[in-house]
């Protein structure tokens, strides 16, 4: 093979190694990006919705306490606002079902919430329930705890899924780094081999030829450089040899 192609091949190979490592890293990193998006879109959204539901539920509970205390206006407003927030977040959770079995959890929340709602939707102020703390603990609080428990279960389900996606993310990140590390190590080793070959098959023969030409000029020693390869360096050595033979012949004649 000609020297030109040999040198080009070295650079092309280096480029190929870097391109492939780059492509694999980009591919894996895009997967990491997707996993992050998945983490935010799928799990975090549901966890956030569950948190908002718990908060709304607790506000409803405060509203009911206000009603029991006879504060109808503020109590009903608090309950109404919290109910809207709860239903809004329940819809968000319902539209973001991403884990197998998540639907069942949401259905259970809906059913238990409507059971809970049935307790406080009826009038409290001006009835026997007003000021009846026993009624609150016996009927209302149990139902409230039940809904809260269901929401927490949904939250745990999504937290576990989030942890799993996080682990996948870590594994993906490692996979994205590894081809890069391998490419760097392989690139360094390859560069060393490439430099050695350039030195041994290009620089060293040229140095030998320079020395031999100088020896011819200074001490009239014959040009004697053996080249192993069949490339431009070999052609150059042959040409110099021919030149000296011609020069010697001319001088003799």
């Amino acid at each position: 093979m000609r020297l030109k192609y040999k040198i080009i091949s070295g650079f092309i190979i280096l480029a190929i190694m870097l391109i492939i490592a780059g492509v694999i890293s980009v591919f894996e990193l895009s997967h990491v990006g997707k996993s992050v998006q998945k983490l935010l879109d799928e799990n975090y959204k549901s966890i956030d919705a569950a948190n908002n539901m718990i908060e709304a539920l607790e506000r409803e509970d405060s509203g009911i306490l206000l009603l029991i205390l006879g504060n109808w206006g503020e109590g009903r407003k608090t309950i109404h606002d919290a109910d809207s927030v709860f239903l809004e977040n329940l819809t968000i959770a319902q539209n973001n079902v991403t884990i197998p079995g998540e639907n069942e959890y949401i259905d259970r929340i809906r059913i238990s919430y409507f059971d809970y709602k049935n307790i406080w939707i009826r009038p409290i102020v001006g009835t026997s329930k007003e000021g009846d703390i026993k009624w609150y603990y016996d009927n209302h609080h149990q139902s409230f705890s039940n809904v809260k428990l269901m929401i927490k279960e949904l939250m745990i389900l999504n937290q576990n899924a989030m942890y799993k996606t996080g682990s996948e993310l870590q594994s993906r990140a490692e996979k994205a780094i590894m081809p890069g590390i391998v490419a760097i190590v392989a690139g360094i080793i390859f560069s060393l081999i490439f430099s050695y070959f350039i030195h041994y098959y290009v620089i060293s023969p040229i140095s030998k030829m320079i020395k031999s030409v100088n020896d011819y000029n200074d001490y009239n020693k014959p040009f004697n450089v053996e080249i192993e390869t069949k490339d431009e360096i070999n052609d150059l050595a042959n040409s110099i040899k021919k030149l000296f033979i011609k020069k010697s012949t001319d001088l003799k004649s």
């Binding site: 093979m1 040999k6 091949s9 070295g10 190979i13 190929i16 190694m17 492939i20 490592a21 694999i24 591919f27 894996e28 081809p179 391998v182 392989a186 080793i189 390859f190 081999i193 490439f194 070959f197 098959y201 192993e228 390869t229 069949k230």
Partner: peptide, 23 residues
Amino acid sequence: IFPLLYSSIIAFIFGIFPLIYVP
């Protein structure tokens, strides 16, 4: 696929390159 593709290319490159240079 990716680990084996990358490894086979590296093995091929390191295998073929010395054959190009060294007679």
